[in-house]
Design a protein around this nucleic acid. Structure first.
Lengths: 176, 176
DNA sequence: AGCTTATGTCAGCCTTGTTGACTTTCCAAG
DNA sequence: CTTGGAAAGTCAACAAGGCTGACATAAGCT
């Protein structure tokens, strides 16, 4: 029983590697998997607490974040980034517009499109949320140091789905 | 108002640092935040696809993972790790026991406790799920290299809630 | 004997995801 | 100019998986 597990642990290192790839053992990978799990919990904990006061959820936070990141983005663009259905996103956007946090303006060039902007109230909530998140991220970065941060981002980028990666990359590459 | 944002961006580097803390700019932090968002999506994508075939969700995956990690764990211990209510966990465990993936045995020392074990079928599903996740993690690790992996784990550990961190640490420290 | 703990369960609610069907608006190609 | 299709919005229904509150049972502890 227990020995099966240990057998797995011992057999995963294919003979292709000598011993320089100890960081690729199944045990190391499992540690990484759990690190992602626990860290993501911490990562979302602060915004979640704040959102409770506004009767909003993570879905609202995501919308607010990406509208703030690229003001004037269209609904379709947001759909591609968030990877949810338009019905799901629309429900969130509707409440945000109703509550006066998001401004939805009909496109000038293509009037079918709606361009999304944060209102002043929206900007305020975005700042409250992202500042809480930045506080934690800043503490983690500071404690870990620049080299660790570089490695952190490198691994995370490798973990992204290639089709979704450009949403992350595009942020600083092309201002467009 | 808008100037506050710019003021923030400019002022976030406290004078305590000269210029060695460029990795702590708000822009760098935002990149880190989005990296977490997109990477977590990739991180869960493969298991999610597999779970659809079994009509299970992420909640089942989490339970299976941690029961596999520490066989014989109690319900209360699992509750502490997962951070959900017992009703929520119980709903998941019930289906897993009914479906013959998890074995729930009354404790010998304390008969109030239930000790949880994966059945053979449970082990098989766990392996299918974790192998998919390991494939992605392994690829990311391999592409990023050992130093990056070290930094990755360091930052993630810093990001965890201190009260939850021991669930991660305890994994390899004490076999108990 | 009585309090506490561990677990399970029922009922109901919320958020956030899904699908399917339908409408309106409007660009663009025939 | 008309029509096809894309973009967006809406309604309805449903499911997963969180939550709370209340309650039951069994078992350990004092």
């Amino acid at each position: 029983m227990k020995r099966d597990v240990m057998a797995d642990r011992g057999a995963q290192n294919t003979p292709t590697s000598g011993e320089s790839l100890l960081f690729l053992t199944d045990e190391q990978l499992r540690r990484g998997i759990e690190a992602m799990f626990f860290a993501y919990r911490g990562f979302t904990a602060d915004p979640d607490r704040i959102l409770e006061n506004y009767a909003y959820g993570r879905a609202h936070h995501r919308a607010i974040h990406f509208i703030n990141r690229s003001p004037g983005t269209t609904v379709n663009n947001l759909l591609a980034i968030l990877g949810v259905t338009k019905q799901s996103l629309n429900r969130v956007l509707r409440t945000l517009v109703q509550d006066g946090l998001v401004d939805s303006r009909v496109g000038t060039r293509d009037k079918r499109e709606r361009h999304l902007y944060l209102t002043e109230a929206g900007v305020n909530l975005e700042r409250e949320l992202s500042e809480a998140q930045r506080v934690r991220m800043r503490a983690a970065y500071r404690a870990a140091g620049p080299e660790a941060v570089s490695g952190f981002r490198t691994v995370l980028e490798q973990m992204m789905d290639p089709e979704l990666k450009h949403h992350y990359i595009a942020t600083t590459e092309c201002t467009k």
